[in-house]
Computed example of a mutant assay.
Amino acid sequence: MSKITEKLEKEQFLEKEEFKWLLENNTPDLRADLSNRARRVAGQTFGNGVYVRGLIEFSNYCKNDCYYCGIRCSNEQANRYRLSEPEILDCCAIGYDLGFRTFVLQGGEDPDFTDEQMLELIRNIRSGYKDCAITLSLGERPRAVYEAFFAAGANRYLLRHETASEDHYQKLHPKQLRLEDRKACLQDLKEIGFQVGTGFMVGSPHQTVENLVADLLFIKTLNPQMIGIGPFIPHQHTPYKEAKAGTLEETLLLISILRLMLPKALIPATTALGTIDPKGRELGILAGANVVMPNLSPVSVRKDYALYDNKICTGDEAAECRVCLTKRIEGIGYEILTHRGDYPQD
């Protein structure tokens, strides 16, 4: 065990069989070894700081019909909403007063929230909050649209690849969605100059160890600035409503592996992790994560942005989320950092 984990900590390339061994031998001792190494590596760059991002889930309309997602277009039970620009700007104002210096605008691929509207929104946020980072999570767009978003003032873009294996991708998505298109979008975003985030669901339906190894190898090659992973959690109005959820243990193991693979990456302890375990986000940080994303969306719509069932923090006001997370982070010996928290440059 120690030879492989030592090799990983030294950022030496692991062979497929070595990654496979780590994933197939996920014992408490192995997780403890990897998490200790991951914390040490994270501390060398970030100290005991955890970056905080203000999440604004501005629309749950989506043109896509991904088989695992609660806001898929064919879910007729979803209570759809779309925040107006003034409502979104109000979220930014509240967040700024609470100390947030990164806003994450996340939505489904909403065809009626146009690129022109998004450009105007980005410009207004950039004009009003010059010291803040703007992160977008809006799915697949043409390269020219990404370029326009970047020129308007957006800094970061989150686009999970979900799985790097073609056959697995097709089991999770309708046939009109293609893995090669998603990978091309990620490459475009990097070339344009965004700080880019990708990631995958842990324990998604039909996922194999080989799929996870492919994910790790893809991420190592892409070398993103941000990596978002979280456990798959089923939603009651999807084809995979009866599927088994991903586990805390496998997610924590993978967070540690990713931290050691890419020491400077920005890795969130996700809401999904906190949903499957009451201390999931704290455990994620202790495994090597260094970002948390409290929700700035209006409480009236929180429960409707339901990618999966039983999402936490849907009833908390933004200030409550901020205070609660700060206490939780301090309780494990870390501190919230309120600056932008950009990817560290060499």
Rank of each mutant, 00 (worst) to 15 (best):
A184F: 01
V41N: 02
V41R: 09
E191C: 00
K10A: 15
R126D: 14
E166T: 07
F232C: 08
G95C: 05
E282D: 12
M261F: 14
V301E: 02
N36P: 02
T247Q: 02
Q170P: 00
L325K: 05
Y81E: 08
Q207T: 04
P174A: 08
F150S: 01
N223M: 10
I267P: 01
G139F: 03
P263H: 14
D316K: 15
K20W: 05
I71P: 07
D346C: 05
D277E: 13
L136F: 05
I276S: 02
I285T: 04
D29E: 12
S297T: 13
A78K: 08
L55P: 01
I257T: 07
M1Y: 12
T135L: 09
Y61A: 01
E320H: 10
T114N: 01
T270K: 00
L254V: 08
C62F: 09
A42H: 01
P28H: 04
G230D: 08
H235G: 10
A272F: 01
W21A: 04
S204M: 06
L254E: 14
R123E: 15
K183E: 13
A269G: 12
D304V: 02
S127W: 02
E109W: 00
T102N: 14
F150P: 00
L8E: 08
L83D: 13
G139S: 03
R141I: 04
L22T: 10
Q12G: 06
A272W: 00
G99Q: 11
A152M: 13
D316E: 10
R39D: 05
F100T: 01
R160C: 01
E250N: 05
V202K: 01
C66A: 06
C66E: 09
H168W: 07
C62M: 02
I312W: 00
G246N: 06
A32C: 07
V52K: 09
I134M: 06
G108Y: 02
E24G: 03
Q117G: 15
P111W: 08
E6D: 15
L159D: 04
I94C: 12
L248A: 04
L337N: 11
L105I: 06
P234F: 08
I4P: 11
V196E: 08
G107S: 15
Q12F: 12
R178W: 06
T135I: 03
N295G: 10
Y240P: 02
Y81N: 10
Q170D: 10
E191S: 11
L30D: 07
I255P: 02
F232D: 10
T338G: 07
H173S: 06
D29Y: 08
V292Y: 04
I255S: 02
R322E: 15
G47K: 05
C321E: 14
